[in-house]
């Protein structure tokens, strides 16, 4: 927590182990916004379930 008390940057070496969270997060965003069953293997069920969210987030839908 010490980094939060001051304004010193966190060394990049300590950031590196967590960078895997970026592709994982992007995959999650992909499942919400674009997947049509290719990744989730649930057909278009997820796609249809997320339908209104996708429109209102401003992502092209159809």
């Amino acid at each position: 927590m010490n980094e939060l008390a001051g304004s010193r940057p966190i060394p990049l070496s300590r950031l590196r182990p967590w960078l895997l969270a970026v592709p994982v997060s992007l995959l999650l965003a992909y499942l919400v916004t674009f997947d049509q069953g290719a990744v989730s293997q649930m057909g278009s069920y997820l796609h249809e379930l997320m339908h209104d969210g996708r429109h209102l987030l401003g992502v092209p839908c159809h």
Binding site: A21, V22, V24, S25, L26, L28, A29, L31, V32, T33, E48, L49, M50, H51, D52, G53, R54, L56, L57
Partner: peptide
Amino acid sequence: QQAGLFLALALYGVSVGG
């Protein structure tokens, strides 16, 4: 789909939040 709106935005929020 209206219930799915909450799921979609919750997952999207988690994703961009991370």
